[in-house]
């Protein structure tokens, strides 16, 4: 095969696969513009809708309460993620730069939590939360989210902090810095790239979290997007136009995150892997 034919084959195969990957999104799009009547008309999914139902988007946002779910999601993310990073970076700082016994043991301890099935904690958390009236309480939810995110945060930040030269600490100590200031004024600012990675990944994980929330939050007014969309299905089960409009809206913030931070997803991930 000549170079040229090879190139054409390569592009054709890749483009074909990419088109297949886009099909579900295209389907969501064409469904989102259909009105309820279109689903009972016996017409094909691919037929042009009788009326373009742009209203589906507004309805999903207001009547479907998607706007509220997204606002809740933002509130939870912007409270939980920075708090988690603070807790994780403090621990990562201690096990990489301070005199602590069994550093590796401590690291392994936290890392195990990253992989344990959440199912192991569900029953005790649910019982405990209902006993102490913490169901439908964001404070309780934050603690649980932070607890389950600690392993990943420490993994990434420890990996980065290990590479910061020791001479920096020694110079700081000679200048009379205490550990607290070394952490806050020197190490933390250098760790910014790792913090950015944790921020983005943790943000997405929190935004998408479903299982823990489904047993700790029962009040619809406090739900975030995944659980919200599910209640949406119950209420508007047959209205696929509305449901797909909701799906489409819920994808937009994720797309924005990708567009703004796309470089982190390859390089940041590589950093997490090769520490």
């Amino acid at each position: 095969m000549s170079r040229r034919t090879k190139k054409i084959c390569f592009y054709t195969a890749l483009t074909l696969l990419a088109l297949i990957w886009l099909l579900p999104v295209v389907t969501v799009f064409i469904t989102a513009l259909k009105s309820q009547a279109d689903f009972y008309s016996g017409e094909s999914l691919f037929s042009v809708p009788e009326v373009w139902k742009w209203n589906n988007f507004a309805d999903a946002w207001v009547k479907g309460r998607l706007g509220m779910y997204m606002r809740n999601g933002l509130i939870i993310c912007f409270m939980k993620v920075p708090l988690g990073i603070l807790v994780e970076s403090l621990a990562a700082f201690a096990i990489t730069r301070l005199k602590v016994k069994m550093k590796n043991g401590i690291f392994i301890f936290f890392l195990l939590g990253m992989m344990l099935p959440h199912q192991m904690a569900l029953i005790p958390l649910n019982r405990f939360f209902s006993q102490f009236g913490l169901i439908n309480n964001y404070g309780g939810l934050f603690l649980v989210y932070i607890g389950f995110g600690i392993g990943y945060g420490i993994l990434v930040m420890r990996g980065f902090m290990r590479t910061i030269p020791r001479e920096l600490d020694e110079a700081a100590y000679i200048d009379g810095c205490a550990e607290g200031r070394l952490y806050w004024n020197i190490i933390l600012p250098i760790t910014k790239p790792a913090i950015a990675t944790v921020f983005i990944i943790d943000f997405l994980n929190t935004w998408n979290e479903f299982l823990l929330q489904s047993i700790l939050v029962t009040d619809d007014a406090l739900r975030t997007v995944p659980n919200g969309l599910i209640s949406f299905m119950g209420e508007y089960g047959t209205n696929y136009g509305l449901l797909n409009a909701g799906v489409l809206i819920s994808i937009v913030p994720v797309l924005l995150v990708y567009l703004v931070f796309q470089n982190y997803f390859v390089e940041g991930m590589a950093g997490a892997v090769k520490q």
Partner: peptide
């Protein structure tokens, strides 16, 4: 003193993950 830095992570992690497990 160094252990103080680990304390918050340790307490939350134990309460939410380890003890329930």
């Amino acid at each position: 003193k160094p252990y103080l830095f680990i304390l918050p992570a340790f307490v939350i992690f134990s309460a939410v993950v380890v003890i329930p497990t």
